[in-house]
């Protein structure tokens, strides 16, 4: 809630007070842009046509879809998402390389048939899944590589935050905002390892410091060293 008694420019957009054009954690910001990608050890896409299943295991929000999409941008190939409900009853596509997201939802007969077809055509399947599909894949004749995505931790969160901020910075305007280590730890604890839950928290954090800067009429040439996370709990 931005008061008009303050600069009307900031009433239109409080993030200008920080030298940003928007909240760095708003949806629709270029989170997937290559320059914003955070390497967590698996940035290189799997090799196509290798008669293998690469399964990415991890809890909700740990980055399974982000990895699948990042690799697909490198290799091409089809991407299929399996929703809950009746939408899961669709034949999984098999190409030189194919990406199946939420593959644990694929009904067993369709899954087995597609795995068999992938083995026969020497395809590479890359799947995001909550359950281990390695036994089925080996049974079908595919080699298996398992990637278990770890939960988000504070250091990575700080790097990610810095990159997201860089992406919304107005040119030529200095920006002194940084996520303190204590706040990063607090956010990762609240988010329980999930990137999207962390992004929710960071959005609130960024909104709070923007409003604080507007209220205080802060000169943005002076850095904000420590954002007050407790603002979120008013």
């Amino acid at each position: 809630m931005t008061s008009l008694r303050l600069n009307p420019k900031f009433a239109l957009n409080p993030y200008l007070a920080l030298g940003w054009h928007a909240n760095p954690f708003a949806l629709g910001e270029p989170v997937m842009a290559p320059s914003l990608w955070i390497d967590r050890g698996w940035s290189q896409a799997p090799v196509p046509a290798a008669q293998q299943l690469v399964q990415v295991l991890g809890n909700k929000g740990f980055g399974k879809t982000a990895h699948l999409r990042h690799w697909q941008a490198q290799t091409g190939g089809v991407y299929a998402y399996y929703p809950p409900g009746w939408g899961r009853f669709k034949v999984p596509p098999v190409q030189t390389i194919a990406y199946w997201d939420e593959a644990d939802r694929i009904p067993a007969p369709l899954l087995l048939a597609a795995l068999g077809r992938a083995a026969r055509t020497r395809a590479t399947l890359v799947v995001g899944t909550h359950t281990d599909l390695s036994r089925l894949a080996k049974f079908s004749g595919l080699a298996v590589q398992t990637i278990r995505l770890p939960p988000l931790e504070a250091t990575t969160l700080r790097i990610w935050t810095e990159r997201q901020i860089q992406a919304v910075r107005l040119p030529t305007v200095p920006c002194g905002v940084e996520l303190s280590s204590a706040t990063a730890h607090e956010i990762t604890a609240i988010a329980q390892g999930s990137w999207r839950a962390a992004a929710d928290e960071l959005h609130i954090w960024a909104a709070a410091i923007a409003h604080q800067a507007v209220r205080e009429g802060r000169d943005r040439r002076h850095p904000i060293s420590q954002a007050d996370l407790s603002l979120r709990r008013r």
């Binding site: 708003a26 959005h203 909104a207 409003h211």
Partner: peptide, 11 residues
Amino acid sequence: ITYNGSLIRVI
């Protein structure tokens, strides 16, 4: 109204 909240902005 124009709104600048914590999760939402209305522009």
